[in-house]
Design a binder for these strands. Structure first.
Lengths: 357, 357
DNA sequence: CACTACTCTTGCAACGTTTCATCAACCGTG
DNA sequence: CACGGTTGATGAAACGTTGCAAGAGTAGTG
């Protein structure tokens, strides 16, 4: 078959096929066509068959825009992540998608690339599309903007943001949305405490600027752990959170005279750690962990496969994604009288060869 | 400010704000509001100011559904990828997004997870949303379906599919879309030829089932190279294309008596190769490359950071994404009389420590 | 046979935009 | 001051759905 049908549907130039055309072809009213599409059970068998055949023959495709316009809200949720190329976010999104599928929602994803501008862009795009809700896992977020979006009726769940800062005195997080977070201060503390325990006397941390709350929280914890142990934490800045930036930071360390180098390095995420280790291995032959011990953050799938398997602070990325979507669903069904909920996960140290102890 | 404004916009229960409301508040017609939004230059300064203020005060958000309904086609393109968790596809998407941003298009992404069903789902979803075009980098594709979508007017560009099979005699690829591909047969050939050159006498290939054309092409090339060298290629099946599946396959090899193992393993992608190497390293202490040499495929960013840096067949993932979007744009602007174009990249061997030579 | 109860169908009024043909107002010119 | 020419503003007609009130049959009951 197939080829024998001749010209199927509206080939090329002609006007697009709408429900009216289907109705005419099937000899029924548009209302009936709509019913066949949305509540097939209430329409009689023969009519349904006629309509279905007409749909197939004409190659009718439902116009979601019109449907959406009429219905008010879509079956879609929007997610904004910092960087979809980073496995941590990829897993996060994966968790969201899995949970969404179970509830018949579709997820559309945008990468902000840590640009506040792109983030705003996606935010408005999603709001204009009347998505059912927004998942925000990007961080330089304009709180006023988020709040106004929430006020206008689109629920927002933020991933990886403060659970209870209350700096501005508002109950439960300034922006007015549920949050899923990990205790990043604790994560930073764990990492540096582990380095110190393993014998590090000159701990350092490689970080990157940008107003990511996670980053400053990790620094805070790292510094606390160092201070508690009686050491000072050296801060080394990388350009961003990528492997490449890590590699550059690693070179910088490698170029110093051996006596001047830190003996334990905590990296703000695994990508950076991988980069730093690349520089150590290929450019300077620095032994990990003997000369310098390493700890990363996120525990991405590749961490256990690096040159020297990377000790890392694990976050339950996929679970966090699922949870974020669950919270969003809760808000969606609760409607106006929804209450903000804040789920906080604990980071966990995963010991591997890149550190001692 | 902020708090002093009191209740901004339609807080909570009230009816959503539309252009009509803005028009009334600003004392102009809806047509003028529309003009302020779309062609601000043709409306007088004072009116524009009044409208803009009304928009801000009411918290008006444009309804994209209505806009889209009226305009016919969106500014969005849909992309379907096999697995957004796989860095190769993440990079591909990244390239698409970068190119899209330059042309003012938005990209929405769906992961098919190698399920034909999910792929169809996204395909219809995108068509119903009247996207401007579709980028297909998933493979079990139903050619009839794609062809009908193209016929109905939505251009499609396929990534990673045959460039010139012509098995069904049709000019340029059966489904009627432009394609961006890599010569996977050549890639497979390169990989196994390299193994053999490095001294392998018992080459093997780890693959996964699923009707991915890339996989069978790589197998084809691998077998050809083995045969040419006078050896036989052992085929070892993994469950899918993930690290975990690779690890299982690796264990299986490790469990054999040493004399029974292959001495060179080509994996269908880097994820699988990483898994295989994990099994070798942690479960059996098999030395790479001395006991078994390894070659992967895709050359993902982590390949150079694995326990033993992984030799791999590189594909220009990001560039491929950009190219796919460029071809799509070409089809979009060409309209009905668009011609299918087929861009084919060459794979490249990247030698690292996991293989000899 | 009249009546109620039920099952499907139908036609029409939204939904919130954009677009376009008119219209109004104003400006300089002859 | 009448005239075209410009520039801006207006109102109404789509766009393709969905949902609903009302209607048309059909069947069962007294």
């Amino acid at each position: 078959m197939g080829a024998s049908w001749g010209s199927v549907g509206s080939v090329g130039n002609s006007r697009p096929v709408g429900m009216k055309d289907v109705a005419r072809a099937a000899g029924v009213s548009v209302g009936t066509v709509s019913n066949v599409l949305n509540r097939p059970d209430i329409v009689s068998a023969d009519r349904r068959a006629r309509v279905e055949q007409a749909i197939a023959e004409l190659g009718y495709v439902r116009n979601d825009a019109a449907r959406l316009l009429k219905m008010g809200r879509s079956r879609t949720v929007g997610a904004i992540v910092l960087d979809s190329t980073n496995p941590f976010y990829a897993d996060l999104v994966h968790g969201m998608e899995a949970a969404a599928e179970d509830s018949g929602l579709a997820v559309i994803v945008g990468s902000s690339g840590n640009s506040a501008e792109r983030e705003k862009l996606y935010l408005s795009l999603f709001e204009e599309q009347r998505v059912r809700g927004i998942l925000l896992a990007s961080a330089g977020t304009d709180r006023e903007l988020v709040r106004s979006i929430v006020d206008r009726g689109t629920p927002v769940v933020m991933v990886e943001d403060e659970g209870e800062r209350g700096a501005d005195g508002r109950a439960g997080g300034g922006a007015g949305g549920s949050t899923v977070s990990v205790d990043d201060v604790e994560g930073g503390r764990l990492a540096v405490a582990h380095l110190v325990e393993g014998g590090a006397r000159r701990p350092a941390m490689v970080f990157a600027r940008g107003d990511l709350h996670q980053v400053s929280a990790r620094i805070e914890g790292a510094e606390a752990a160092a201070t508690e142990a009686g050491f000072e934490l050296e801060l080394i800045e990388a350009d961003d959170l990528s492997v490449l930036a890590g590699r550059a930071a690693g070179s910088e360390i490698a170029e110093r005279s051996p006596g001047d180098r830190p003996d334990g390095v905590f990296c703000v995420n695994d990508l950076v750690a991988v980069g730093v280790m690349q520089a150590f291995a290929y450019e300077a032959g620095i032994a990990v962990p003997d000369e310098i011990a390493m700890v990363g953050y996120d525990d991405i799938a590749f961490a256990r496969s690096t040159v020297v398997p990377l000790t890392s602070i694990a976050q339950p990325s996929e679970l966090m994604g699922r949870t974020a979507l669950a919270l969003l669903e809760e808000k969606i069904s609760a409607g106006a009288d929804a209450v903000d909920r804040h789920v906080r996960f604990s980071p966990e140290l995963v010991r591997r060869g890149s550190s001692r102890g």
